[in-house]
Amino acid sequence: MEKDIVNIGKSVVIKGELNGSEDLTIEGHVEGTIQLREHVLTIGPNGRIKAQVFAKAVIVLGEVTGNVTASDKVDIRDNGSVDGDIVSPRVAIAEGAHFRGSVDMQRKGQPQAAKPPQPQGGQPQQQTQQSQQPQPAQRVGA
């Protein structure tokens, strides 16, 4: 069965909350909040977003100003631009992409959920007691 992809065209301007339960491609302007928690959001080359974004996966070819939370992956392609904080277990930023903000990637194996991002500059988790001496080199990884 062919999968439907909904497009928001170049000339469309949306202000407010955008919710959906199917994959969406935006080529127009959106301001506010975008929620596609189980689906893929693609910001096309002409897309201009000023919004908090929550989706399963976000592919950026246009411009996003605002925080992006994805339960699967954020992919900023060549010439894509994100000004904001990203929360996602997987993040890919292409050479030539613009990014300004923070990236919060949880460890593999931890439960993932699209949740509102933490405020920038907030206290990070600190659960383990730090050793005062540098530890011997060890292989890192989850």
Partner: peptide, 18 residues
């Protein structure tokens, strides 16, 4: 920003990168 560095640190450490 270097995408592969972000991925490296994120995947290795599960960290938050500014």
């Amino acid at each position: 920003v270097v995408g592969s560095n972000v991925s490296f640190f994120g995947e290795q450490l599960g960290c938050k990168i500014f």
